[in-house]
């Protein structure tokens, strides 16, 4: 199939990451790129669920939060090595996703949106109110840096390589799943759940599986986030955060892996640019979100392609 083209793209990607990682000396830019990486992981994770399988989630920040809080509590309160906390953090998110997914994914449309929203709110409130364990509304401090054997990821540069390494692996993983029998079955659910079942796809089971996978990726991002900032608070994992992930996916273009990267980059950079607007920031952000959805509902990437084709067509005549 696309074997060769794909390898070239991956190679370009790796080279770009290496060049950026070595040449950038500005801590702020490195930090920004790390955040783009984390958001790309989140967007990729939701894209598998929403873009490919067509199941909306308005509570995805919950899994991001579970990943972050589990590792924070284990490594700080219980002095577990970060690398050992990783499977626990990801595993916890997967178990929660499995338990919640079975009843929730039977719903569809707005009802599914509401179910996931409610779940996300409950987890957020839990982070905020269970203060003896989570540190409550003021947050959880003192998370140790990530150490893997002799490697200590306490500089911006090392973390940059770590995060983007994980992003690359995740992209390859998603690509492989999508190009396989499972990926086609996921897309068939998106196109028509009834027809997918009539063709022999176990839609219920597959939806739960992809939900669990998606939760695992989001938890991975949460894990990396916690050991990057050393401090987490419930506000990072609230309803607005969940919506931001949805927006990354939609603006980048649903069912597109590179779209997820693009959407994540844009939504990470946008607030930085909007700082210039100081108190107008929220107003402008809201306006941009609305305009993109009104005029380019298929996302910016596809939207630009569509406009190009329309332009070509009108010129051919």
């Amino acid at each position: 199939m696309y074997g060769r083209a794909q390898k070239i793209i991956y190679a370009v990607f790796v080279i770009a990451v290496i060049i950026l990682g070595w040449s950038l000396d500005n801590e702020y830019y490195l930090q920004l790129l790390i955040f783009i990486g984390l958001n790309t992981l989140l967007a990729l994770s939701l894209n598998m669920l929403m873009g490919y399988a067509g199941q909306i989630s308005l509570g995805h920040a919950a899994f991001y939060g579970i990943g972050a809080y589990v590792t924070a509590i284990l490594t700080t309160t219980y002095n577990v090595e970060p690398i050992l906390a990783l499977p626990a953090a990801v595993g916890a998110a997967m178990i929660v996703a499995w338990i919640v997914g079975i009843p929730t994914l039977r719903l569809s449309g707005y009802y599914l949106g509401m179910g996931t929203l409610g779940f996300g709110m409950i987890i957020h409130i839990l982070f905020r109110e269970w203060s003896s364990v989570t540190g409550g509304a003021s947050g959880f401090v003192g998370i140790p840096p990530l150490e893997i054997g002799p490697l200590i990821f306490d500089s911006r540069r090392s973390y940059f390589f770590l995060v983007w390494g994980v992003v690359l692996l995740s992209i390859i993983m998603c690509r492989r799943i999508i190009d396989s029998r499972v990926g086609r079955a996921l897309r068939s659910i998106h196109d028509g759940e009834k027809a997918a079942a009539a063709i022999g796809v176990d839609t219920k089971k597959l939806k739960v599986q992809v939900f669990v996978l998606s939760a695992a990726m989001a938890a991975m991002a949460g894990f990396l986030y916690a050991h990057l900032i050393y401090f987490i608070s419930p506000g990072t994992f609230n309803f607005v955060a969940s919506i931001r992930i949805v927006t990354m996916v939609v603006i980048g273009g649903m069912a597109s892996i590179w779209g997820a990267l693009f959407g994540a980059s844009l939504l990470t950079l946008l607030p930085e640019w909007l700082h210039a607007f100081s108190e107008f920031e929220m107003v402008v952000y809201g306006l941009i979100l609305m305009s993109v959805m009104i005029f380019l509902p298929r996302g910016l990437t596809r939207g630009v392609i569509d406009i190009y084709y329309r332009y070509r067509k009108s010129h051919d005549k």
Binding site: I177, R181, V182, R184, A185, A196, I199
Partner: peptide, 11 residues
């Protein structure tokens, strides 16, 4: 997709 039940690759 039609061959789904005749193949077995999982995630």
């Amino acid at each position: 997709v039609g061959l789904h039940t005749r193949t077995r690759c999982g995630i």
